[in-house]
Simulated assay, not measured.
Amino acid sequence: MPHLTLEYTDNLSALPLRPLLHALNQRLIASGQFSGPDIKSRALPLTQYLVGDQDDGQAFVHLRLALLDGRDDAVKLALSTALLQILQQQVTAPDGCALQLCVEVCDIHRASYAKHSS
């Protein structure tokens, strides 16, 4: 735990995915909340999307951090703020394209989460 899912519009083709995932994972480790091997990150391009009613000229990155429940709101806010800073540093919009960056922290119900490692 945690699970980090980066969804991005496919018009962000120059997105530095591997360095971005490394930077996000490093920030999570630096928070002191997680150890490296527990963090599972992935990036998913979105080929079908719509922002408002605009068919083009729009891009977004939505980062979801899923954590086992039990952390207080202050910790979650610190994590989302830190991850948003990484996005702001590393994600740029193509010319003529508006960009939205967002981070969501959500809880995974601890009592029903199952995991196996070997």
Rank of each mutant, 00 (worst) to 15 (best):
D10L: 09
A82G: 15
G52P: 04
A30V: 03
V105F: 05
A23V: 04
A30S: 12
Q54Y: 11
A43L: 04
K40C: 09
D95T: 12
Q100M: 12
R71L: 14
A30E: 15
K40G: 09
K76V: 03
A30Q: 15
L24I: 12
T92S: 15
D56K: 13
E7T: 07
C102K: 08
A98I: 02
R64L: 12
A66V: 09
A14D: 15
D10H: 13
Q33W: 05
K115D: 10
L84N: 13
V91E: 02
L68C: 06
D95S: 13
P2K: 05
T92W: 02
F34C: 03
L6F: 08
D38C: 08
A14E: 15
K76A: 11
L50W: 04
H116N: 11
V51D: 01
D69S: 15
A82N: 10
Y113W: 10
F60N: 04
Q88V: 03
Y8N: 03
V103T: 12
Q54G: 05
V103N: 03
F34L: 08
Y113T: 05
F60T: 07
N11M: 05
H22D: 13
A14V: 06
D38E: 15
A74Q: 14
L101N: 08
P45T: 08
T47Y: 06
S41E: 08
H116T: 12
Q100G: 14
A74M: 05
Q26S: 13
K115Q: 11
A43C: 08
L79H: 00
N25P: 00
A82V: 02
E104L: 08
G36F: 03
G32M: 10
T47L: 04
D73G: 08
R42L: 08
L79A: 03
S80Q: 04
Y8E: 02
Q88F: 01
Q88E: 15
L87K: 10
K40N: 08
F60C: 06
L50N: 07
P94A: 14
C106I: 15
D55V: 12
L79W: 00
Q85C: 06
A14H: 11
L79D: 00
T47H: 13
V51Q: 09
V91N: 01
H116L: 12
S41W: 04
L50S: 12
Q89K: 06
H116F: 07
R27Y: 01
L17N: 04
R110K: 13
Q48P: 00
